[in-house]
């Protein structure tokens, strides 16, 4: 008979109307994820033997690592490990190929970031593991750290002069010093750069100085 299908359809929608909603209210209510869900890639730093199996198998070149060879034991030591998530397609190859099972995906899927550089995740060798390294590397590292801390101290004391020298322009140095006075993090970063790579430091400082000059065109070197 005509119309029975229509009535059946109405019955189905009416039935669904009084059923439980299947909506998950996400930010308040986290979804229940399956056990093998692939979210954020995690590394257990101590277990890694820097065999580079993961970097070789990665189809998109997401993974890269730095390592040093310990001549006494003839073993590699991992210095830093970086995961550039913007290229990762969660294929799981790295996890499958890791001989020490030190890579795994956790359940955190909120990986969005405002800047590209924040997407990249870099594991530095933790401080307590530094002593584990060959002596000359430890010594170099210590020397480096000392130089950095000296540089930070100098910058905090007389930023305009040092920055002016770096930029070869005293005005700019003053402007940049004024801008950085309130931003300790950036100051430290520039200090590290000045120790490790003076050319890069020049470039970054130049850009920052230009930006600061643009933001406060009339204030000049007045500290905000």
């Amino acid at each position: 008979m005509y119309g029975t299908g229509l009535l059946k359809g109405l019955g189905i929608t009416l039935k669904h109307t009084f059923e439980r909603e299947i909506t998950q209210q996400y930010p308040e209510q986290m979804p229940v994820l399956p056990a093998r869900f692939r979210g954020n890639l995690q590394l257990d730093f101590q277990d890694c033997i820097a065999c580079e199996m993961c970097t070789k198998v990665c189809p998109n070149g997401v993974l890269s690592l730095e390592s040093v060879r310990d001549d006494k034991t003839n073993k590699k030591k991992l210095m830093s490990y970086s995961i550039d998530f913007q290229y990762c397609m969660y294929c799981n190859f790295c996890v499958e190929n890791c001989p020490k099972h030190c890579l795994h995906f956790d359940h955190n899927f909120e990986l969005a970031a405002y800047d590209r550089e924040n997407i990249k995740k870099v594991y530095q060798r933790p401080q307590e593991l530094v002593t584990d390294l060959p002596e000359e590397i430890v010594a170099a590292e210590e020397k480096n750290q000392k130089r950095i801390s000296v540089m930070i101290g100098a910058l905090q004391k007389d930023a305009p002069k040092i920055l002016g020298k770096l930029l070869e322009d005293e005005e700019k140095g003053k402007v940049l010093a004024a801008a950085l006075a309130s931003d300790q993090d950036k100051l430290e970063k520039i200090a590290v750069m000045m120790v490790e790579d003076i050319e890069k430091a020049k470039k970054v400082a130049g850009a920052l100085a230009n930006k600061a000059a643009k933001d406060h065109p009339k204030e000049g070197n007045v500290v905000a």
Partner: peptide, 10 residues
């Protein structure tokens, strides 16, 4: 609201 309930939404 009604259309949401019909589709089992909120």
């Amino acid at each position: 609201k009604v259309s949401g309930f019909i589709q089992q939404r909120l």
